[in-house]
Write a protein that binds this DNA or RNA. Structure first.
Length: 637
RNA sequence: GGGCACGUGGUGUAACUUGGAUAGCACGGCAGCUUGCGGAGCUGUUGGUUGCGGGUUCAAAUCCCGCCGUGCCCGCCA
């Protein structure tokens, strides 16, 4: 617990708390202990939409007026008169029933700017996670084709949610589930063994084309039978077919890693489905859940092991009225369904059963940390046994995720159900049609909707613009700058949209470098850096002085925005909604742009020093929050 | 048959979990702003019965009920 002291309070939360305390004592003094609910005051406080109204506002008078059956206007007046100023709040006003507070801009600026100068990289981070261990599963791409623009949404979301959790002091394990026993792998493997061709491009791309072709050939019954025979052989994990499948899948995953690295996405551990089967995790999972499982001897589920839905529905009412009355966990042929394997996997994640997995290093990653993989031969390592699990899986799998989750409650582990989060995101479609890896509508005819192609296009586009830039002094940097801009455009475009919404992918949106975009935020940063450089600071930090020259204009507005970084990070983390943070960044950037236009810094006369420290603080906050989104900053663009 | 998600100016979206002052931002359209710290920007303007109907409330994009539309799901596929 001691180490959590490194996390200071967010300045915006601190001043809000001052207001709430002041309200609390004023109300007590006026009306005694009237029936107020816990947290009501805190929730009543918001930021007024008109700056002249104040810096903070409470609507508490409306609630009190209801109880007292009088007018909120009168109550607000009374409260405003009784309120006592505090360290950062100087005065109060009432308006139309609201109670508004005004912050002392000098004292607050001092608090905020000193906090940022002092904590630097640590500013914006939070202690709310208390070092609890959480596992994030993403993107679990099929090892039969390249990442497409849909896989990318998963990978980016998973990465950012992990970053947010870490920023909130959770201990995060980034896990990737590789299904190397599925029909996709069987299909790809059939194509792989039947083609005479050799890989002539990035392996996943090449395999994807083989896979698409094999899917077409499966329209012939004899091919279909061969593929399904192959599928059965894959389940026998020690067969030579299984070995060939794993081998092919590993080559594909190796290629996926190249894509991941290009996007700055790193994981800690891969869990392979074949290793789950090999480790007999399933039978251990069946042991601990035998009380809720049934093995009907007749009827449509004869010979299979199932969980009856009428056990589940009391905990998940939305499943009532389903067409089926049971969910198969183990097929009558003895093979586990996805459902069964997923349940077993999660029993392992939460430390309910010991998989006895062994691990080996899969490869080194550019971030300096190796990624490990479950492996038939390797060593024991400590993965899993977490308190919380987040599964980044698209929304269409909500049904299975729901059943799987409730199963833990049924076997007496309600806490797992409540700590198992399905981060269900909307799918990514392409104009007018479903994106389908199988049909191959992501390739050919110049319509390459792969993550690699997207990055290539965006980089090309960024390069065209960067080449025209007179601001880039060292042309050697053109390529890395273009790459950074391209990544910011792509990531920001995915992240600014709430996870549950579907996305219609369009090149025009994905390559947008203006307006509500990543490059806009990066541009803001570059302009700020240029001011610091011209003022002779560079990486050094200006001192916070002449604080008295701050006004109530955009300089103070900017200070208030800077103060809200930690709150934005915490909210984005809590709700697993990165768009909370993109919103914050856009507001911060646009406030800076207005400040930039209207308040000269270097020629700011007596206000130069305080404005410089605001600009410096802005660069720190932008770096910190952008890095959580996986976006890097450049000083010139 | 049942369930889940979504529906906000021409377009893409934010705010909905926790009801609060004039529904925020961007793109597009129109009109401006660089011998100023960077025009990937800024300013002004145009455009909204928040899908429809009811209800609760001093107050509804937000909560409740009923519709409509779109997508997804209810498989011994994964």
């Amino acid at each position: 617990m001691q180490e959590l002291k490194e996390f200071a309070d967010s300045p915006s939360a601190l001043v809000k708390d001052e207001f709430v305390q002041a309200l609390d004592s004023a109300i007590k003094e006026l009306y005694g202990e009237v029936g107020r609910e816990e947290g009501q005051l805190w929730q009543s406080v918001s930021v007024p939409n008109e700056i002249t109204l104040g810096d903070l506002s409470s609507s508490v008078a409306f609630k009190l007026a209801k109880a007292a059956k009088t007018s909120p206007v009168g109550i607000a007046k009374e409260i405003a008169k009784k309120l006592k100023p505090s360290e950062h709040i100087v005065r109060f006003e009432d308006a139309n029933g609201y109670v508004n507070a005004f912050i002392d801009e000098k004292k607050y600026a001092e608090l905020v700017l000193h906090g940022i100068m002092k904590r630097k990289k640590g500013y914006g981070r939070s202690g709310i996670g208390k070092r609890r261990k959480v596992i994030v599963e993403s993107p679990s791409a099929n090892p039969a084709h390249p990442w497409h623009v849909g896989t990318l949404r998963n990978a980016i979301l998973g990465n950012v949610v992990s970053n947010l959790l870490e920023a909130c002091s959770y201990e995060v394990e980034r896990e990737d589930y590789i299904d190397d026993l599925g029909l996709q792998v069987a299909t790809a493997l059939w194509g792989f063994t039947h083609t005479g061709a050799k890989p002539d491009k990035k392996f996943d791309q090449w395999l994807g084309e083989i896979y698409v072709d094999a899917n077409k050939q499966m329209e012939r019954p004899e091919v279909k039978k061969e593929v399904y025979d192959l599928l059965k052989k894959l389940e026998e994990v020690n067969s030579k077919e299984a070995e060939a499948g794993r081998d092919m899948a590993e080559r594909c995953v190796m290629a996926h890693q190249e894509t991941a690295f290009n996007y700055g996405i790193y994981r800690d551990v891969m869990v392979w489905e074949s290793d789950i089967v090999r480790s007999h995790l399933l039978s251990k999972a069946l042991d601990i859940s035998s009380e809720i499982l049934e093995k009907p001897s007749e009827g449509k589920y004869a010979g299979a092991i199932v969980v009856k839905l009428d056990k589940i529905t009391p905990y998940a009412k939305q499943l009532e009225g389903s067409r089926e009355d049971a969910k198969v966990v183990v097929r009558s042929n003895g093979a586990a369904t996805y459902m069964g394997k997923d349940f077993a996997l999660h029993a392992w994640k939460f430390g309910l059963i010991d998989a006895g997995f062994t691990y080996s290093k899969f490869m080194d990653q550019p971030n300096g940390k190796p990624i490990y993989t479950t492996s038939p031969k390797g060593m024991a390592m400590k993965f899993g046994s977490v308190k919380r699990a987040i599964n980044v899986i698209d929304a269409s799998q909500a049904y299975e995720q729901q059943i799987m989750s409730v199963m833990f409650t049924l076997i007496g582990h309600k806490e797992i159900t409540s700590n198992l989060v399905h981060l269900a995101y909307g799918r990514v479609n392409i104009e007018g049609e479903k994106l389908s890896a199988r049909s191959g509508n992501w390739l050919g005819d110049g319509r390459n909707y792969t993550a690699d192609d997207l990055l290539g296009e965006a980089t090309k586009r960024a390069m065209e613009i960067a080449q025209k830039s007179e601001k880039i002094t060292n042309k050697q940097n053109l390529e890395s700058i273009s790459r950074a801009i391209a990544l910011s455009a792509i990531k920001f475009e995915y992240l600014r949209i709430a996870p549950e919404k579907e996305i219609i992918f369009s090149w025009q949106n994905a390559l947008n470098f203006e307006g509500n975009s990543g490059p806009y935020v990066m541009y803001t940063y570059a302009r700020a850096r240029k001011i610091l450089a011209k003022a002779g600071f560079g990486d050094a930090l200006p001192s916070v002085s002449d604080i008295g020259r701050i006004s109530r204009g955009y300089d103070f507005e900017l200070v208030k925005r800077l103060a809200g970084a930690q709150e934005a990070v915490e909210k984005a983390c809590d709700e697993a909604r990165p768009n909370v943070l993109t919103d914050y960044l856009l507001e911060l950037s646009s406030t800076f742009s207005k400040f930039y236009e209207s308040m000269p810094v270097i020629k700011g006369e007596g206000a130069k020093n305080v404005r410089l420290s605001i600009v410096y603080a802005l660069t720190v906050v932008l770096e910190n929050t952008l890095s959580l989104l996986g976006i890097s900053t450049v000083s010139e663009m």
